[in-house]
Amino acid sequence: MISQLAAQRHIPKSEVLRNLVDRGLVSIGAKTDDDYLYELVQRAVKETMQPQIERLAAISAKAAHISSAAFFMGVYSATRDRSPAEQRQIEEVASSARSLGIQYLKLKDRDIDAFIQNGVKTITEDDFNE
C-alpha cells in the first residue's frame, strides 16, 4: 500500500511514511499543523454560517422582488389618468431610473451618494432638454 501511494504521488516511500505519521500526529493533537487546523476551522465556520448566508440571500431576493413591484406600481400610479404626452414623459424618467439602477448594481465603488447625485442631475437635465 505504501509502495502504491509512493508510485501514485511520484515520491519516495520514506516521504509517504513521514506524511502519514505527520497526519496521524496532527489528527490526535500530538502535533500542530497550521494548514490542517486552518482547514478544520474554515470548514466549521462555513458549515455554521451557510444557513445564515442562505437566509440573507433569500431575504435579499424578497426585498428585490417587492422593490421592483413597488417601482412598477409607482409608475402605474403616476401615469394613471394622465395625458399621453405626460405618460410618455413619466415612462422616460422611469426608464432612466431603471438604467441608473442597473448601472449602480455594476459599480465596484460604493460611493452611493455621488452616484445618486449624478443620476438625479442626469434625469433633471433630461427634463430640461425636452
Rank of each mutant, 00 (worst) to 15 (best):
F71W: 10
R82L: 03
A61R: 05
L100A: 05
F71L: 05
F72D: 12
E125R: 15
N19S: 03
L5H: 01
S68R: 12
A69H: 09
L5E: 03
S77P: 00
R18K: 15
Q103C: 09
R23W: 11
V75H: 01
L5I: 11
D113W: 02
I11Q: 06
I90C: 00
A97M: 15
D22T: 10
I116V: 15
K62Y: 03
I59Q: 15
V26R: 03
G29A: 13
Q42T: 11
A78R: 08
G74C: 06
E15Y: 14
N129K: 11
V21P: 02
D33H: 01
A6V: 03
I66E: 02
S96W: 01
I102M: 08
A114K: 04
D81V: 01
A64I: 00
R88Q: 12
L105G: 13
I66W: 01
L37F: 04
D109K: 09
A97S: 07
R80C: 08
K108L: 13
N118G: 02
F115P: 00
A7C: 08
F115K: 00
T32I: 09
A30L: 14
R88H: 10
L107Q: 15
I116D: 04
V93P: 00
E54L: 09
A57E: 10
L56V: 10
Q89D: 14
I102L: 11
E39C: 12
Y36R: 12
D113I: 05
Q103F: 06
G29L: 12
V75R: 00
F72C: 03
S77N: 13
A30C: 06
K13S: 14
P51C: 06
V93G: 02
M73I: 08
D33I: 02
R110C: 05
I11G: 05
A114Q: 13
V21A: 04
I116T: 12
A97E: 02
E39R: 14
R23I: 02
N118Y: 07
R23L: 04
F128R: 08
S3I: 07
R110L: 10
F115A: 01
L25F: 09
F115T: 01
R55N: 04
Q52E: 06
Q42A: 12
M73R: 14
S68M: 11
L20Q: 08
E54G: 06
S95R: 14
V75N: 01
A57T: 06
V21H: 08
K46L: 15
M49V: 15
G24Y: 13
L107C: 15
E91K: 14
D113Q: 06
L25E: 10
R23E: 06
Y104W: 07
S77I: 05
L100T: 00
H65N: 07
K108M: 03
Q8R: 13
Q117W: 13
A85F: 03
D22E: 08
L37M: 15
P51Q: 03
D111W: 04
V120A: 09
E130T: 13
